[in-house]
């Protein structure tokens, strides 16, 4: 059981939760996630949330209230406990050069850590964030980006010129990522997928994703896939 340090509403239906990392847990790589639960055996499933940020012994998650599990998360307060399994899954690749990070909705969550980690080597990282109703945390994203572009209520994919970048990494609603894939035509796009999960570690096969290379598990083979692998089929 980990201790919650804060859990604040940052936008309509969006919360930022900070907790103490479980003991003997390695550093999260950008794009990785935890399976979290703050209840007993019901609801049965833990909820996968990608890591927003990690500092020392704390880890934070930016999440949207979409159902029963995240609703319970939103009621948690400083001092409450939460059970975390992770960090799990693969990560965005450590590319160099000019990189665009494109996020929409709750998919903006893993891009904060991604920008931080990518900028540790020689890169320029531009962040594009799409919000449906109101923007939030933009000051925080600005601090980890070379430039930040925000779109509210429209299509964030309209704002980006992929030819300016060597690498594009994205997380968000599937139609957004698919549109970006098409706009990037052949570019090295990486997409972090979302899926309902049960075990979170690759054993139960419920988070299946069809790829060019056959069935893949979003939790273990992903959540980050090459765009062509998942959208090019």
């Amino acid at each position: 059981m980990s201790l919650i340090l804060s859990n604040e509403r940052v936008g309509k239906d969006f919360y930022l939760m900070k907790a103490v990392k479980p003991e003997r847990t390695g550093a999260a790589r950008m794009g990785q996630f935890y399976m979290l639960r703050a209840w007993g055996s019901c609801p049965v499933l833990s909820r996968p949330l990608s890591v927003f940020d990690e500092r020392g012994e704390t880890v934070s998650f930016l999440y949207k209230v979409v159902g029963r599990g995240t609703e319970i998360f939103s009621t948690l307060q400083k001092g409450d406990g939460i059970t975390m399994l992770g960090p799990l899954g693969n990560s965005f690749p450590k590319e160099r050069g000019s990189i665009a990070l494109v996020g929409g909705g709750a998919g903006i969550a893993p891009l904060y850590l991604a920008a931080k980690q990518l900028r540790q080597s020689k890169t320029t990282v531009d962040i594009y964030l799409g919000f449906s109703e109101e923007s939030f945390l933009t000051e925080e994203y600005k601090l980890v980006a070379d430039s930040l572009v925000v779109n509210v209520g429209g299509f964030i994919t309209d704002e980006i010129d992929p030819s300016r970048y060597e690498h594009v990494m994205t997380c968000g609603p599937e139609p957004m990522m698919r549109a970006l894939y098409e706009k990037c035509a052949g570019k090295n796009l990486r997409a972090s997928l979302e899926s309902r999960m049960a075990c979170g570690v690759g054993a139960c096969l419920v988070c299946n994703c069809k790829t060019a290379g056959g069935n893949k598990k979003v939790c273990k083979d992903g959540p980050v896939f090459k765009g062509a692998e998942v959208f090019g089929i």
């Binding site: 019901c42 609801p43 049965v44 499933l45 309902r196 999960m197 049960a198 139960c204 419920v206 299946n208």
Partner: peptide, 9 residues
């Protein structure tokens, strides 16, 4: 492939 129900899946 998976769907949560009250105290079940």
């Amino acid at each position: 492939r998976i769907w949560e129900t009250d105290c079940g899946v």
